[in-house]
Amino acid sequence: MTGQIETRLAQLGVTLSDAPAPAANYVPFVQSGDLVYVSGQISQTAEGLITGKLGNDVNLEGGANAAKACAVALLSQVKAACDGDLDRLVRVVKLTGFVNSTPDFTDQPKVINGASDFLVDALGDAGRHARAAVSAASLPLGVAVEIEGIFQIK
């Protein structure tokens, strides 16, 4: 049976895939009490990595779409942390977004809005969160965006 959150995701045209496996010696998430700390999720879709540098070869819309892809991966990790029941998600607490950008690019918050807007669209008020959006000179595998998150579950 599909839960309310996954039904809403389907209405938005999003189907969660299996949570991405970690690429190195770390775990994809850690639960402490009712908080789940999700490791950084890189911008990728079923078609592959979303790479590039904002302010050079990726425009603002492309960056926002890359951030949305990170948010989808974050929800996949939360679903795994909740043993497959995403309706255990209470709220998004905090996101930290890293944007692969040139030194003169200053719209990192607009890029990470791709994740923030998606989470509010999908989760309503439970998707509203504290946030940081920072520039990075480079990111793993040349991806455009990486986002980590903290989530409250029941």
Results as ranks from 00 to 15, higher is better:
residue 79 K to C: 03
residue 99 V to D: 00
residue 77 Q to P: 05
residue 120 V to K: 14
residue 30 V to G: 10
residue 71 A to I: 11
residue 114 G to T: 04
residue 18 D to S: 14
residue 73 A to R: 13
residue 34 D to R: 14
residue 29 F to I: 12
residue 3 G to S: 12
residue 44 Q to I: 06
residue 12 L to P: 09
residue 76 S to H: 12
residue 60 L to F: 00
residue 127 G to R: 01
residue 127 G to F: 00
residue 31 Q to T: 10
residue 146 E to D: 08
residue 62 G to L: 00
residue 150 I to Y: 01
residue 97 G to C: 07
residue 84 G to C: 14
residue 45 T to V: 09
residue 93 V to L: 10
residue 119 L to S: 04
residue 117 D to E: 13
residue 89 L to M: 14
residue 88 R to Q: 15
residue 6 E to T: 15
residue 154 K to V: 13
residue 91 R to Y: 02
residue 10 A to F: 10
residue 149 G to A: 08
residue 149 G to P: 04
residue 49 L to Q: 15
residue 143 V to S: 05
residue 33 G to Y: 09
residue 119 L to Q: 03
residue 80 A to G: 03
residue 123 L to P: 03
residue 109 P to N: 13
residue 6 E to Y: 12
residue 6 E to I: 13
residue 81 A to N: 02
residue 137 A to H: 00
residue 146 E to N: 13
residue 73 A to T: 08
residue 100 N to I: 05
residue 116 S to A: 14
residue 15 T to C: 09
residue 55 G to E: 04
residue 61 E to Y: 00
residue 141 L to Q: 14
residue 128 R to Y: 04
residue 97 G to D: 10
residue 1 M to T: 15
residue 129 H to S: 12
residue 97 G to N: 10
residue 69 A to T: 05
residue 116 S to C: 13
residue 139 L to D: 06
residue 13 G to D: 12
residue 75 L to Q: 13
residue 3 G to N: 11
residue 62 G to F: 01
residue 46 A to H: 06
residue 12 L to T: 11
residue 21 A to N: 12
residue 113 N to G: 11
residue 144 A to H: 10
residue 16 L to H: 05
residue 27 V to Y: 07
residue 4 Q to I: 15
residue 76 S to Y: 07
residue 19 A to C: 15
residue 144 A to C: 11
residue 55 G to Y: 00
residue 32 S to I: 10
residue 13 G to S: 14
residue 54 L to W: 02
residue 62 G to T: 02
residue 20 P to S: 01
residue 151 F to E: 09
residue 79 K to V: 06
residue 147 I to L: 09
residue 14 V to Y: 05
residue 153 I to H: 10
residue 120 V to T: 14
residue 100 N to Y: 03
residue 141 L to W: 11
residue 67 A to C: 09
residue 44 Q to K: 11
residue 25 N to P: 02
residue 107 D to C: 07
residue 74 L to Y: 04
residue 154 K to M: 11
residue 36 V to Y: 08
residue 134 V to L: 15
residue 109 P to H: 14
residue 79 K to T: 01
residue 39 S to P: 04
residue 64 A to H: 00
residue 43 S to C: 00
residue 141 L to D: 14
residue 47 E to F: 04
residue 16 L to P: 06
residue 134 V to R: 04
residue 14 V to L: 12
residue 92 V to G: 05
residue 14 V to H: 06
residue 37 Y to C: 08
residue 45 T to M: 06
residue 149 G to H: 09
residue 112 I to D: 00
residue 3 G to R: 11
residue 64 A to L: 01
residue 106 T to Y: 09
residue 44 Q to R: 14
residue 62 G to N: 01
residue 116 S to W: 02
residue 76 S to C: 10
residue 149 G to M: 07
residue 105 F to M: 01
residue 37 Y to S: 12
residue 71 A to W: 07
residue 30 V to N: 07
residue 123 L to K: 10
residue 22 P to E: 04
residue 122 A to G: 05
residue 37 Y to K: 12
residue 111 V to N: 03
residue 131 R to S: 13
